[in-house]
Computed example of a mutant assay.
Amino acid sequence: MLIDRRQTIAAMLASALPWPHIGHAMTRSPAFAAVAMQLAARSVEAAPDRAAARRQMLAMIEEVGAKLRSASIFIAQYGGSPVRLAVLPEYLLTSYPGRISIPDFADKGAIAEDGPEFEALGRIASSQNLFLAGNAYETDRHFPGLYFQTSFLVAPSGEVVLRYRRLNSMFAPTPHDVWSRYLDIYGIEGVFPVARTEIGNIAAIASEEILYPEIARAHALRGAEIFVHSSSEIGSPLATQKDIAKRARAFENIAYVVSANTAGIEGTTMPLASADGNSVVVDYKGALLAESNSGETFTAFADIDLDGLRAQRRKPGMTNYLARQRTALFAQVYADADFQRADSLIDGNQVRIPDRDHFRRVHDEVIERLSKKGLI
């Protein structure tokens, strides 16, 4: 089915989809814990070839499974509820691409939708009876030569039940860069997917996208109750921009945020602990339930109270920000603010493979448009 190619977030906000009916009002949801696994990402840059990179990634998945199992046992012994949701950090298996060309990294470091890496992650989710969220670079058969940064959720069945492709990126292709074709293939449901599971309605936010309120709100308007956030960011005892944003996205959408940061990045020239620490679980009122210090750890874990969240969403009052939001007010403003143009990688009917500097040039063009409008 073809989708209107001019459809934007503004259009979706104007006709905000009704929240899905969920038959949970009369029964109490089972208690469960969520854990943000703070683990070190491992670069594949030094791997001599594709085969070596794949072996490294699969070996790392096995390590993740063992660490997660141990973490779940400890959490249960510590008095917590059974772990049913685990979130892994951003680009855990490969680190960031750096200056490797787009097609070369797609071949070396991006995994296929039906690849052995997802099969291995599915075995972990199945054997440990949990939902496993993470983030990886992924190829798409519809866009050969490109890759997308994908946040995913694997169910206890072993099936990938959520694929969210990052929409805001400075250095990599996104669905917005091939927007008309992406919408034709996946529709708006594939742009802002929400997985409806026995542990709640789950959506993903990738890395720095936590700084963009519209990403979380678009998911919330489609029913999301828990945001899984895979990140690789600077940790600090001071409040960082992302720290503040995680709490804001939680209370303004009446949703949990489970945010897993890397415990450093191995195999690059960057100092190991540059992106380390401060993994968190934030409740639907914006309160920190748990926060990790530095290093590899599972200490950001907490029980999830879905019944409390759902009761809050149904309660009339000044703090029911979802119910009070008048989305149609903003539709025209967003529609008119067309500064970041779609389809930057579409030439006619062809998808163009960009060089790394393409994204900087596009960014410069956006700044120029904003400047000409007198907005900056």
Rank of each mutant, 00 (worst) to 15 (best):
S95M: 04
A224I: 00
E225R: 06
A239Q: 07
V258H: 05
V366D: 04
T269A: 12
E266P: 00
G80K: 12
P173D: 10
I9H: 07
E113A: 15
L370S: 01
A136E: 13
R217C: 02
S15I: 08
A41Y: 05
Q312F: 11
G98V: 05
A31S: 12
G23M: 10
F359A: 11
A216N: 01
D140R: 09
A71V: 06
S231C: 13
A300V: 03
L132V: 03
A120M: 07
D4V: 09
A328C: 03
A136N: 12
L39P: 01
L68T: 14
Q312V: 01
S127C: 08
E63F: 01
A16H: 13
L306W: 05
S157P: 07
I75Q: 11
L146Y: 02
Q149S: 09
V44R: 07
H176I: 09
R222L: 04
R352G: 01
T327S: 14
R247Q: 15
P237Y: 12
L13I: 09
P89T: 08
R28D: 12
S101V: 00
A273G: 04
V257G: 02
Y147L: 01
A14K: 13
G308T: 11
A155E: 10
A14L: 06
I234K: 02
E296R: 03
R361P: 00
Y284W: 14
A112M: 04
V191G: 01
A224F: 09
A46F: 06
I376Q: 08
Q340R: 13
A337I: 04
L162M: 03
F32D: 04
H21S: 13
S126W: 05
Q332Y: 05
I265M: 04
F32L: 02
H219Q: 13
D140S: 12
E296T: 07
D338P: 00
R163F: 08
A206L: 06
M1P: 09
D140V: 06
M26E: 15
I346D: 06
A76P: 00
Y212P: 00
L121V: 02
G277C: 05
G264A: 07
M57A: 05
S157N: 10
M12I: 07
P89C: 07
